[in-house]
């Protein structure tokens, strides 16, 4: 109980810092998820008729996920320097695969008879894509976006190691000051706020899903 009270004391005495780092992490999550969604969905759509291109994009995206986070965060430092840029690039590369894979899977899963009948009604290929395939694939794509967003929350803690800010700052400063007072509180702040943020993002994206999924399609 004492631990929890002292943690709340710690939080309430630093609301500005908490809000600032929370917003930094949120900024990463939003920019990374939006950028990765645009790129991944575009790639998924463009490669939908070419099995080789599709597989190749997925393989490359999955290689990024293989590279350890500290390596991917630091590998671009010689080119772009420290701070937001290398962190953004690394998280962007990580976030590609879940969305791309789900876009491909979502488009593949659209019943070919539905596409056939849409063509039969005289819809152009673009109309088929935007009016039939993407709406039907959307629940699956959104699930991929959700995974990427949650992944980004977790990984963004590393950004602090390349001076990128975010909730990882609490963990880093706590670790540096161990075992001084408030060091443990700082570490818990970083971990717990990450989970809270993840939960909040999860709720938001599920709500988005509920309202944006075509009615009649169970998500």
């Amino acid at each position: 109980m004492d631990g929890i009270r002292s943690w709340f004391d710690y939080l309430s005495s630093r609301t500005d810092l908490v809000v600032e780092t929370l917003l930094q992490t949120l900024a990463y999550v939003v920019t990374v998820t939006v950028a990765a969604s645009i790129v991944s969905i575009t790639v998924g759509v463009l490669t939908r008729h070419n099995a080789l291109a599709k597989e190749l994009s997925l393989s490359i995206a999955s290689v990024f996920l293989t590279i350890p986070s500290l390596a991917l965060f630091t590998i671009f430092i010689p080119i772009v320097g420290l701070g937001f840029a290398p962190s953004f690039i690394a998280m962007f590369l990580y976030a590609l695969l879940p969305i791309m894979r789900n876009t491909v899977a979502g488009l593949d899963s659209v019943d070919s008879s539905v596409i056939e009948s849409a063509k039969g009604m005289g819809l152009t290929p673009n109309q088929v894509l935007f009016k039939v395939q993407l709406p039907l694939a959307w629940p699956v794509i959104l699930a991929g976006i959700r995974v990427s967003a949650l992944l980004t929350v977790g990984i963004s803690a590393i950004a602090t190691l390349v001076a990128g800010g975010g909730l990882g700052d609490f963990i880093k400063s706590g670790l540096a000051r161990l075992p001084l007072p408030n060091s443990l509180e700082a570490i818990w702040t970083g971990v717990i706020l990450s989970l809270v943020l993840a939960l909040a993002i999860d709720v938001v994206l599920r709500t988005v899903g509920r309202f944006s999924n075509p009615s009649g399609v169970r998500s």
């Binding site: 995974v147 949650l150 929350v153 590393i158 963990i171 971990v191 990450s194």
Partner: peptide, 18 residues
């Protein structure tokens, strides 16, 4: 387990250290 993906590995490591 799905939500666990959002757990910062960095934080977990430090907590285990503590």
């Amino acid at each position: 387990l799905g939500l666990g993906q959002a757990l910062p590995a960095y934080g977990l490591l430090v907590l285990f250290f503590v």
